[in-house]
């Protein structure tokens, strides 16, 4: 592991610890400022309902997303959130366009740039949106169900993953057949299944099928999109 990777982990740990401390200070500050502390009974009852679902999900997300986002990208993404709908699409498209793999150091650099820029742009837009909303109600007017733009905002994810998927499937079509087929079968049986579970099913199927096809001699390095 290179010196850059080692230092990335050191800095990542420092920033993550700082983020954790700052985020926990927010409810403390609210409680102190308003002199309103939660009753332990209500807090633990509310937390239990959330933790039973979201704590195991957090573990699964860290394991599933870390290999895709790179080291710095993972530390940053888990601070700013919105990983599946923002940070991963940005990383995937950046690696796809530049031609680097997530497993090489150049890919680590590119994914870090993609995630960092996405975090900055998103944070600034949300802050501006909140200010605009507070002052003029502008954002409310373009995203409300009465807005003519509302149907487009409801379909961001299909449009986003359509654009990414087209480029990716064009290069790696052999790898896409098994996961897409399995996902469609699963959805035909239970269409209400959560996206988080679908991602795990899709990734595990894709990894298994690719491994078996590679061992069976059905894939070459060109199928991974790397011609060198």
């Amino acid at each position: 592991m290179s010196d850059y990777f080692n230092k990335t982990h050191t800095w990542g740990r420092i920033w993550t610890a700082a983020a954790l401390a700052i985020f926990l200070c927010i409810p403390v500050a609210i409680s102190v400022h308003f002199n309103a502390w939660p009753k332990a009974e209500y807090f633990f009852k509310g937390l239990a309902a959330v933790a039973v679902i979201f704590y195991p999900t957090a573990v699964i997300e860290v394991i599933s997303y870390a290999p895709l986002l790179g080291a710095a990208g993972t530390y940053l993404s888990f601070v700013t959130g919105n990983i599946a709908n923002l940070k991963l699409p940005c990383t995937i498209s950046a690696l796809e366009t530049t031609g680097y793999s997530a497993t090489e150091e150049e890919g680590e650099v590119i994914s870090t740039i993609a995630v960092a820029v996405s975090s900055i742009v998103t944070t600034v837009i949300i802050a501006l949106g909140v200010l605009l909303m507070s002052v003029t109600g502008f954002i409310t007017s373009i995203t409300s169900p009465d807005s003519p733009l509302y149907p487009a905002f409801q379909q961001i994810l299909p449009c986003l993953f359509g654009a990414i998927g087209a480029g990716y499937f064009y290069k790696h079509y052999k790898l896409a057949v098994a996961p897409l087929a399995v996902i469609l079968i699963v959805l035909a049986i239970n269409g209400g299944i959560q996206t988080g579970i679908l991602i795990v099913i899709g990734v595990v199927t894709a990894l298994l099928a690719t491994h078996l096809m590679y061992k069976g001699g059905l894939l070459t390095k060109k199928d991974g999109g790397f011609d060198e």
């Binding site: 895709l68 986003l160 990734v203 390095k221």
Partner: peptide
């Protein structure tokens, strides 16, 4: 390295398939 690059591409494709599948048959 070839296996690793294929597995990396496969992981991305698995994720993309989840969202594409959801856009086709999700209820």
């Amino acid at each position: 390295k070839v296996w690793a690059n294929l597995m990396s591409a496969a992981a991305f494709i698995g994720l993309i398939c989840a969202f594409i599948g959801r856009a086709i048959l999700g209820t």
